[in-house]
């Protein structure tokens, strides 16, 4: 059962989940915002892919840039318009705001585009399969693994080697003190949203790539995955989120194989029960990190 195919499957699923979780936890780390609108960045990226490919007829690489850019822009705009004014209010006010933003974006798409799903064309390579050492796997599984490695390396360089990254890590630890170093609050927060949108956009390409369609509630499932992966891995560091993503991918695949067919529709429920029981014994998640719960003043 644990063969190469399972391994590649798990790695690719884990990669996708790790990207999803990482984008969520970056904003959480700095703003202490559990961002319910995060799924909508993924959904908007999907519509960006659809719009640029079907309406604008752009080449495939340009549609991808377009989709990712749409997510980044949405993320940044939601920060400016909604999260910035609410930032100093209570923690719940921020979360409720993100929920309202999520509902707003879903319904805006519902009104402006359509409640019905749209087909998204991705380059043919996404649907091809290859044969590696006897294991057959879709090429996109390999692409996501490769992309995730590149993204994680770049992210870690950004966080460790650039002043912006250092400032973001500092802000996640002690927000006010970071401002006392002269780091503008808006700079680190906007940066977090932009990177979060970037990761959502990249993940969206692969998420949409599996079903080749997008509808107004496309964002709900990846949001939940990001949620569960972060609480499992640990909400207190980016590393925790990435680890949580991979562990989630592994658990998911194991359950898919071991659960009897009649129970497969409860897979998510099982996943979740496992996670909650695990949290009872280890409330911080797998990785204890450095993020504190100090809020932005």
């Amino acid at each position: 059962m644990i063969d190469l195919e399972f391994l590649i499957n798990t790695l690719s699923l884990g990669s996708l989940y790790a990207l999803l979780a990482l984008g969520l936890v970056l904003v959480y780390g700095i703003l202490k915002l559990v961002n319910f609108a995060y799924g909508e960045y993924i959904m908007i990226a999907g519509y960006g892919l659809y719009f640029s490919a079907t309406v604008l007829q752009l080449p495939w690489w340009a549609t991808m840039l377009f989709g990712v850019a749409a997510a980044v822009l949405t993320s940044y705009l939601t920060e400016l318009a909604a999260f910035r004014p609410v930032r100093t209010k209570s923690a719940n006010a921020l979360i409720v705001t993100s929920f309202a933003v999520s509902i707003f974006l879903q319904n805006a798409v519902l009104i402006l585009v359509s409640p019905r799903a749209r087909a998204v064309q991705l380059p043919p390579i996404f649907s091809k399969t290859v044969n590696i050492a006897g294991a057959t796997t879709p090429v996109r599984n390999l692409l996501i693994i490769g992309t995730t490695i590149v993204v994680l390396v770049l992210m870690s360089l950004l966080m460790k080697k650039t002043v912006l990254g250092i400032a973001m890590r500092a802000a996640a630890e002690k927000f006010t003190t970071t401002r006392l170093m002269g780091v503008p609050a808006n700079l680190v927060i906007s940066a977090a949203f932009i990177i979060s949108g970037l990761l959502a956009g990249i993940a969206s390409i692969f998420w949409i790539g599996r079903s080749s369609s997008v509808d107004p509630i496309t964002g709900a499932a990846p949001l939940l995955i990001a949620f569960i992966a972060t609480v499992m891995g640990g909400m207190h560091s980016p590393t925790g989120a990435v680890v949580g993503g991979f562990v989630y991918g592994l658990l998911f695949n194991i359950l898919s194989i071991t659960l009897p067919a009649s129970m497969i529709s409860y897979r998510d429920a099982f996943m979740f029960v496992i996670v909650v029981l695990f949290l009872l014994f280890r409330p911080e998640g797998i990785i204890k990190g450095g993020y504190t719960e100090e809020r932005v003043g």
């Binding site: 250092i166 890590r169 500092a170 630890e173 003190t177 970071t178 450095g290």
Partner: peptide
């Protein structure tokens, strides 16, 4: 003091 415990002295 409020130093950043997760960051190195250099950072």
């Amino acid at each position: 003091r409020e130093i950043f415990g997760q960051l190195t002295v250099e950072e």
